[in-house]
Design a protein around this nucleic acid. Structure first.
Lengths: 239, 239
DNA sequence: CTTGACGAGTGTACGCCGTACACCTACCGT
DNA sequence: ACGGTAGGTGTACGGCGTACACTCGTCAAG
């Protein structure tokens, strides 16, 4: 009974199986109970084995986000920008509700992982392809970013969120930039537009402006509802 | 040289000094570097000494938020609801930027601490006192809550964010409820209104509805800016 | 002035955590 | 047949939150 496929031939791990197991574990017991040790245990492996597939715990968390961002539905075919955006955001929300820990983790991280970038790029594309100017798209992304998790919010800003590691990602080298340009053209266009002079990707994005833009969007809407005597017409009794 | 007030008579700690030291420490070195041990050290005290003033680290974090929520300016005297709200939100934002760790911590916590409740109550009051119906106010609070930190967002919802401790805060006893009613009347009015039948504070708040309400607010605004050919008229060169 | 209770600060210890580093070993292409 | 290498192991370290038992200074009552 130990020829061919053995009873339990100790399946090899892969980055993907590790990440998926981590997501499942966090889904079931909450992010607080996800440790390298507990994860290793459910995988039937010693903790240090995981480090052959993820660089460290932060990398694990980034990877987990990358996995779930892949669960967001692709944009529907639709001429109306509003419907397209709305559906996508609601799909993202569904994902975040399926993985309750994700919001928390997102807040901690400035992801920039391939999956997140791809999603962001696609999201920006939904606007650009439907005639939104780059300029407006940029602000809109900021405005939608936070609650709605249209994307990951801190993509371009906050050079020194953590006082120490400021210089870490300092200047992206030319090669990396070219990679970006090819893979994430929409991200790049928007990033470029937020610069006021030459072509450098630099810090052209005014945080305070973005904030007030989003705030005024909301205040306009609120004023409108108020003026129209809006009321939530939810049925009385059940549900 | 050891009579009357000694050179360093070992000032007694208090909850307040502990909390303020924690805020200062987090401000300077980031929340990751704030440990019970490091905090004890800057206070010239052994780690366990802190536990005479805070119940545990979570309590410490809640306390820290309570301290900084006190830094938000009170509402200005102003007839226009929009200006009042706008200023308050911008003040809150200023506080959050002064204490970069706070956003992160807020996300982790369902505060409900006295200071946060007081702020929330006052915030709700700004709407109610200016003629907003309770119903609309409720939704607006949800809509503003997240990015803007008009308030703390998860105040009434998510019964089982953490699978384990669901039953912890289960039914608030009558006495606590009466306390609430007196100290935070506005919070109570809004909470009551979100119930569909009898007078219990229960879980009457439809998360999905709130989300879509806020989303549509934003989408309306975005559509409006787009239709009007809006563009960010930021000056070209300097600043 | 004595005493005894009490609350602030101490010391030790435990069980978690992330992960560095050296090691083993099964598999692969040559 | 063999050497390299990628995947899994074992041990160990320093840091974390905090339980629990303690000392000691203060102060009110006797």
């Amino acid at each position: 009974m130990d020829h061919g496929t053995r009873a339990e031939p100790r399946e090899r791990l892969s980055r993907d199986t590790v990440l998926r197991a981590a997501v499942a574990l966090a889904d079931e017991y909450g992010i607080a109970r996800l440790s390298m040790r507990s994860l290793a245990e459910v995988l039937g492996v010693v903790p240090m084995a995981l480090y052959k597939h993820v660089a460290n715990k932060d990398d694990l968390l980034d990877g987990m986000l990358d996995v779930i961002v892949g669960e967001i539905d692709p944009p529907v075919e639709e001429r109306e920008w509003r419907d397209v955006i709305r559906r996508r955001v609601l799909s993202a929300r569904r994902v975040l509700r399926r993985h309750r820990w994700a919001r928390r983790v997102l807040e901690t991280r400035t992801a920039m992982t391939p999956g997140v970038l791809a999603y962001t790029d696609s999201f920006i594309g939904m606007f650009l392809e439907r005639g939104f100017p780059v300029d407006l798209t940029h602000h809109v992304m900021h405005a939608i970013g936070s609650r709605m998790w249209g994307f990951t919010q801190e993509l371009f800003d906050d050079p020194e969120a953590d006082p120490a590691q400021a210089a870490a990602d300092a200047v992206p080298d030319q090669a990396a930039l070219q990679q970006m340009a090819m893979r994430y053209p929409n991200v790049l266009r928007v990033a470029m537009a937020s610069t006021h002079d030459d072509g450098v990707v630099g810090r052209g994005c005014d945080d305070q402006f973005e904030f007030e833009f989003a705030l005024d969007l909301l205040l306009d809407g609120i004023g409108d509802r108020h003026a129209r005597g809006w009321t939530s017409a939810r049925p009385g009794a059940d549900r």
